[in-house]
Nucleic acid binder design. Structure first.
Lengths: 345, 345
DNA sequence: TTGTAGGCGTTATCAG
DNA sequence: CTGATAACGCCTACAA
């Protein structure tokens, strides 16, 4: 019961291996009868072609990969779902690959390109601060989705699709300011973060300054590095600690919905109410924010648009190597129950 | 700038390919100087070995795969995290592979085994109603995690690790009964479900009957098949529809926390309260259930135990082909804010 | 310690 | 329409 190969099938059918190959791959030049005959024996003997051998030989597969850093993120899940559909429509095969926290997504990509003969790559999540040299090695088209192009590398090399994290963050904080809040805490990312977390923090700072509200460091609450990033628990723990300090504050803006939910819980447990005592706002527009109670005011990213545009941009790049775009989508401020005017003016 | 291979490196270094291979794979029989020299040129030319070629040649890699059906499920995410750690400790490499909704997990496994020369497989999620014949083809050890062994195939072929879905479900419904509830609705899976959804429903029915409560079909609310299974939205929509019927009912038991959260929201929006008007309970013990407000009473699956036992069982099977176990863990009933005595007796 | 040669399972090329 | 046969890129005897 050793592994059965294409040769075995060929022998069994009394034909050459190339004929079997043709049968498997739906090649046109093959007699219909021999084909069905071959297919039958394949079924009978449960023959499964070896993908490694295929990939090795094939010049270029019609395959693209999605590299996801942070598969837990429910926001990515919905993006992937849409992408899967589109890729299938295009008759491409999809390699969905998860990048672990300590891996370098570009290194992973480099390997995968060789292994699977990819035509293109889609990066989802991660920080994406890579040297130009490294990106250049990746000689297939790629688009960075969901991460604002921070402009640290040459933009002619790739495409990106995202919302304007700075701008949208500004929008949210502006909304809070206009409600009358002046002491707005922000649940932010770790201080070293140079990616979206940073941009969202910058948006917060700009909005404050435009509303003549002095920036106060003690209202910036970075995530706890000992707990999983962007988790509800992280928001909960950080908020709990903040509440103990009794720093005057009427609103909390979390740079992710999950953090906002955790923060709400911490507030409620401290005997305070949302939005009466604290307004709480999030970012992303995940399902849980909508069903939480109170439902969470958030910036809803246009998942469907982001996903579709990412994919179609990638296909465009595959067709035309010199094509590249940096597309920014508008997100929506969705006002829900968790925010309101400050009561304790 | 064509793809660079091991031959190129060999030529560049003025050595044979085997020497390069030895350098790459940390073989002992190699001069240290030549080795560092080779490693350097590899770095300089950004050479990356082709995994397809490697897999093709390798007899058996130290690799195991996790096949996940339903990567969205936050419960699986936490399991995977633990498994990753353990696998790394054991110096095995992990192939994490996502099975799409319409794919057959065993077919996928069959391909992967050949492609990657796997030593073992771990199945997470899915329904797992496969013919014995098909499972037999899979001639590497595998363990089914999280899914109760339904006993429809010979149990000597594989191992399984899970909680007793029937028993735990019974526990929850019993708790609700003992609180005094007699009209308990269940948010269940689709009717055709023969897997955990069915077992949890059976546990519900048994508990009712043991408490002399007649089973009433109108209190069984199957998920909406047009919406994603086990999503908050599904729970929300189904519950909303149920509430409109005004069927007498004081408690809702959802077979997943996500459904419970959606249901809570529907109840709250209808102007009723949890737990005063409706007690709501879930199953799984996901993070969101803990941070929701009201926090959700649930059956918490022992994630860490399940994950560790799954992996160690698999390694045991790899060592000893005849080894197999069907391990059942106890889960914990966690009583939180969403349940209480019925007020409208 | 190092190099040469053969083969892993496919597909592509090119004669028949 | 079909069948040899040569790659694909790497690893591993085996010989040196």
């Amino acid at each position: 019961m050793e592994t059965i190969t294409i040769k075995d099938i060929a022998k069994l059918c009394g034909v050459g291996v190339s004929t079997v190959s043709r049968a498997i791959n739906n090649h046109p030049d093959i007699n219909n009868e021999t084909k069905t005959m071959i297919i039958n024996t394949i079924k009978q003997y449960n023959y499964v072609p070896n993908n490694s051998a295929r990939n090795l030989k094939r010049v270029e597969a019609k395959a693209i990969a999605i590299l996801v850093k942070g598969i837990t993120n429910p926001f990515f899940s919905s993006m992937i779902k849409v992408m899967e559909e589109v890729i299938e429509e295009k008759k491409y095969s999809l390699v969905l690959h998860h990048v672990e926290g300590n891996e370098d997504e570009v290194d992973v990509a480099l390997e995968l390109v060789k292994e699977k003969r990819l035509r293109g790559i889609l990066f989802l999540g991660g920080y994406f601060t890579h040297t130009e040299e490294k990106l250049r090695q990746l000689n297939v088209p790629f688009v960075i989705s969901t991460i604002s192009a921070t402009g640290c590398v040459e933009q002619q090399m790739y495409s990106s699709v995202s919302v304007d994290d700075f701008e949208e963050s500004y929008k949210m904080v502006q909304y809070l300011c206009e409600l009358g809040h002046r002491n707005i805490a922000i649940l932010a990312s770790r201080e070293e973060d140079r990616s979206i977390g940073r941009l969202r923090l910058d948006g917060y700072m700009k909005a404050l300054s435009d509303h003549k509200i002095p920036f106060r460091k003690e209202l910036v609450l970075p995530m706890d590095t000992s707990i999983e990033e962007y988790s509800m628990k992280n928001g909960y723990v950080v908020m709990k600690e903040f509440l103990q300090k009794k720093i005057p504050c009427t609103a909390v803006y979390a740079i992710a919905d999950s953090l906002a939910i955790g923060a709400c819980r911490a507030i409620l447990e401290s005997g305070k109410k949302v939005p009466e005592d604290f307004s709480v706002a999030g970012f992303d527009g995940i399902e849980a924010a909508r069903f939480y109670s109170p439902s969470i005011t958030t910036i809803e990213q246009p998942v469907e648009d982001l996903a579709r545009e990412s994919i179609s941009t990638l296909f465009e790049m595959i067709k035309n190597k010199n094509h590249h775009v940096h597309k920014i989508f508008k997100a929506n401020l969705i006002i829900r129950e968790s925010t309101g005017k400050p009561t304790c003016l």
